[in-house]
Simulated assay, not measured.
Amino acid sequence: MRGTFLAAAAICAVVTGCAGPHVPFTHRHPPTARHREEVGDWRLQIRRDKFTGEIACRLFDRNHKAFFLGGAVAFRFHKDWNTGRAIYRLDGDAPRHWREDLPELIRIGAPFERGGIDNPGQGLVWIPFRRLEGANSIAIEARPDRAPVTFHFRGLKGLYQTAIDQGCTPDSRFVG
């Protein structure tokens, strides 16, 4: 009877994730130290594993429509949209095709192609962070048949520096 109970408890733990004090060897996540900060339109989350010291950083806008990853900022549109012909303007300057930034995106290792051959961008438009550092906003026309969408950078540069000061280097420590 006792063996049947333990076997049932083990199956319950494996299949449904239920775990109680009667189930031996339950998995517990290691404790993490968390740091959260918000400045302007942007948010920073840092998690540090207290045992291993590993760190993971997230830098994103308050609406979760833009995020920093791999030395670039990705701007999120509908995932089914092919954004291959997207055009952007920084602070109202001359329009620029995002593909003009491809050599730099490749050099810095930005993960700009995430989908299949028919829609490699998965609705994301990637811009190298270096191009955005001095700007206040970006207007992106993700598709020729859609109106441009404006994103603001209040807080981005400062939070990026905070992330670096907190140990989020190299940029590979950032997660999407």
Rank of each mutant, 00 (worst) to 15 (best):
R96W: 02
W42F: 10
C57Y: 07
Y88T: 06
D91S: 03
R43G: 00
P24L: 13
R99Y: 06
A86D: 02
T83G: 01
H29C: 09
P30R: 10
R47I: 06
R48E: 15
R47D: 14
K50T: 15
L59F: 12
R48H: 05
G17R: 08
W98L: 03
V39G: 00
T52P: 04
F5A: 10
L59M: 12
K50Q: 15
D93G: 13
R76E: 11
V73K: 03
P30S: 09
G20E: 05
N63Y: 01
A7K: 04
F5I: 13
R99F: 05
R43E: 06
W81I: 02
L59V: 14
Q45M: 08
C12T: 14
F60R: 00
D80P: 02
P30Q: 11
D93T: 08
G53R: 06
R43V: 14
F5N: 06
V73H: 03
L6N: 07
Q45E: 15
G92H: 00
L69M: 02
R36C: 12
A72L: 13
E100F: 01
F51V: 15
N63T: 07
W81H: 02
W42M: 00
R99Q: 09
E38F: 04
H22V: 13
G40M: 11
G17K: 11
T52L: 12
A86G: 06
R76A: 10
H29P: 02
Q45R: 11
G17T: 11
G70Q: 13
P30M: 10
D91T: 04
D61M: 00
E54S: 12
W81P: 00
I11Y: 06
R62P: 05
I87D: 00
R62H: 05
F51Y: 09
F77N: 05
A56W: 07
R62K: 12
G53V: 14
T26M: 11
A9C: 09
G84R: 04
T83K: 00
F60I: 04
